[in-house]
Structures are given as structure tokens and as C-alpha cells.
């Protein structure tokens, strides 16, 4: 187990290293941060002065190596916008994003598990059709549109829930439903198909022939075996969830990392974007590791080497 963990942690290093290169190329070659550091009336000389002050006049490889050296020392540089270290800015927002991600996962599970189970049990019924159509529609509707519709209905029309922000406990309900419902659709379909496959297995037929109750067959024999693909997809959805958080946080003015990264991308606040994407990547990798570890809990036959 320890060997497995150690090996998995080592495997995280090359992708993170690759990420630094991709980010550097996209951010430096894709745009010019100096355009956001000077006022619209700035002269050519003033622009050149700012470029030199931030080291953007140096060759790209030199800039990258300097940045990599700083990152290895734990320094992601300073935010141009806030004139303060980038990583603390990102980490201050991490709890809000994790809170939203966890609440969204909970919403997703509460929607996906019953929907997937019912859809499999009642295969080809109106309920199955409802879940299938609902999943397709849910996947097709963009997050920001769902979010705005929920605000208009629950906040503006009914006045039940706060529109935006993170000032009160109920503030999380609408962003969590917006984000959670989008991954629930995928999860419900995965659970449905894996349940259908398991329900056709001989040991299920045998259990039923022995007179085991339907509840016992579904919950004890079928669901547990159907969970492995479900949990795998659930882990993979973390990346989708964090990507969606960028949009959902913006719609609901939720003060998380996603909103910070989006605002930073718009003005090429390089250090914050690098630190933010790095933390996002790390969260996704750790989640996938936890998913792998959960296999052993779900299926005791699985052993890590």
C-alpha cells in the first residue's frame, strides 16, 4: 500500500512539470500582460519601461527557467493586480471552492444514485425515459444558463434563496444545484448502465431464485458491484466540477478560486493563473488517487501493489 502510494505520488510530478510548460506557453505567447499594466494613453517608451521592469523583455526560455526555479522554491511570484504573492491569494480562496465542490458532489450523488437505480430497475419504463431525457437535457444546458434560471425562479420570483455571494448558509444551495446537477446527469447514466449489466449476471439470477428480497438483491448484491465504474467516473468528474466552478462562481459571485482565475486570465495576471491552475491540477490528481484507494473499500478483492 505504501509502495503504491509512493509510486502514485511520484507519477504526479511529470504531469505537473508538463503543466508549467503548457501554462507558460499559453500565457506568455498567447498575450501580452503589459497591455494591462499601463493606462490607455501610455506612450511607447512607457510601455517599454514597464515591460523591462517586469522582465518581459527577456528571452522566453530565460523567463521560463527563472519562473521554474522560483516555483521549485515554492514562490509562484507576485500578482500584478494585487501586488502581493500569488499563492496565498489562491489558497485563501481554496476553502470556498472546496466547499462548493463538496456540496455539488453531494447534490450530484443525491440526484444520480436514485435516478440511476430507478432507471435501471424500471428499464424501458416512463421513469427510465424521463431519466434518460432529463440526463440529455441536463448535459446540454450550459451551467451559466441553469444558474441564471435558478436565480430568477428561486431568488427573484419566489424570494426563497439568496441571489449570490457567500454571506449566509443558504447561499450555497443554488450554486451547488447548478454545478451538481450538471455532473449528476453523467453519473446517473453510468450507474444505470453498470446496474443493468450487473443485474444480468448469473449470481443475481441465483440470488433471486433463492428467494432473496428485491431490496437485498439491489442494495447488497447489485449496487456494490455496480459502484466501481460509477466511482471511477465520479473521480474523473472532479476536473469537470472544478472547470464548471469557474463559470458558476462567476454567475453566483461565489468568492472562490474559479472566479479569481477567470478574472486573472482576463488581465493576464500570470502568477495567479499559474498558481491557481497548479492547485486545481493538484486537487484533481489527489481526488483521483483517493478514488483509486476507494476501490479496495468497495471491492475487498482488489489489492494494491
Amino acid at each position: 500500500m505504501i509502495k503504491f502510494l509512493f509510486s502514485r505520488i511520484l507519477q504526479m510530478i511529470p504531469p505537473l512539470f508538463g503543466l508549467t510548460i503548457i501554462l507558460f506557453v499559453l500565457l506568455r505567447i498567447g498575450g501580452d500582460p503589459v497591455a494591462h499594466l499601463v493606462d490607455p494613453e501610455a506612450s511607447v517608451e512607457e510601455v517599454a519601461k514597464v515591460r523591462a521592469a517586469y522582465g518581459f523583455d527577456r528571452p522566453y526560455h530565460e523567463q521560463y527557467l527563472r519562473q521554474l526555479g522560483m516555483m521549485l522554491a515554492g514562490d509562484f511570484g507576485d500578482s500584478f493586480r494585487f501586488r502581493s504573492p500569488a499563492m496565498p491569494l489562491v489558497l485563501e480562496r481554496l476553502p470556498a471552492t472546496l466547499e462548493l465542490a463538496l456540496a455539488s458532489m453531494l447534490v450530484a450523488l443525491i440526484i444520480a444514485i436514485p435516478a440511476g437505480l430507478l432507471s435501471a430497475i424500471y428499464q424501458n419504463s416512463w421513469l427510465d425515459l424521463f431519466v434518460t431525457v432529463g440526463s440529455t437535457l441536463g448535459r446540454a444546458m450550459p451551467n451559466f444558463w441553469i444558474g441564471i434560471m435558478l436565480i430568477l425562479f428561486f431568488s427573484v420570483q419566489l424570494r426563497w434563496l439568496p441571489v449570490s455571494g457567500r454571506d449566509e448558509a443558504a447561499s450555497i444551495v443554488l450554486p451547488a444545484i447548478t454545478l451538481g446537477s450538471s455532473i449528476a446527469t453523467t453519473l446517473a447514466r453510468v450507474l444505470r448502465s453498470s446496474m443493468l449489466e450487473v443485474l444480468r449476471q448469473e449470481y443475481i439470477v441465483t440470488a433471486r431464485a433463492k428467494g432473496v428480497s428485491q431490496g437485498m438483491v439491489i442494495m447488497h448484491h447489485a449496487l456494490r458491484n455496480a459502484l466501481i465504474p460509477f466511482v471511477t467516473v465520479f473521480g474523473l468528474q472532479m476536473a469537470w466540477l472544478l472547470g464548471g466552478a469557474v463559470i458558476v462562481e462567476n454567475v453566483f459571485a461565489w468568492p472562490g478560486m474559479g472566479r479569481l482565475i477567470l478574472a486573472s486570465v482576463q488581465v493576464r495576471d500570470l502568477a495567479v493563473v499559474q498558481a491557481g491552475v497548479f492547485v486545481f491540477a493538484l486537487v484533481v490528481m489527489v481526488t483521483n488517487l483517493l478514488v483509486d484507494l476507494s476501490y479496495a473499500v468497495i471491492d475487498p478483492r482488489i489489492r494494491f501493489r
Binding site: 436514485p114 430507478l118 430497475i121 426563497w160 449566509e168 443558504a170 450555497i172 444551495v173 444545484i177
Partner: peptide
Amino acid sequence: YKRALSVASLFALVALMLTACVAPAPGAQP
């Protein structure tokens, strides 16, 4: 059993929304 499962699922969804509406979320204050 199927009917009970359907009702329970619906109840769980409604309960989630109601709980989220009234329960304080830890660490919700920035």
C-alpha cells in the same frame, strides 16, 4: 419495494433542499 424506493428518492431530494436552506454551513463566512 419499488414504490417505497421512489418515494424515498423524492423525499431525499426535497430534504436536501430544505436542509440546505436552513442549516448553517461550517466555514461559510469569508
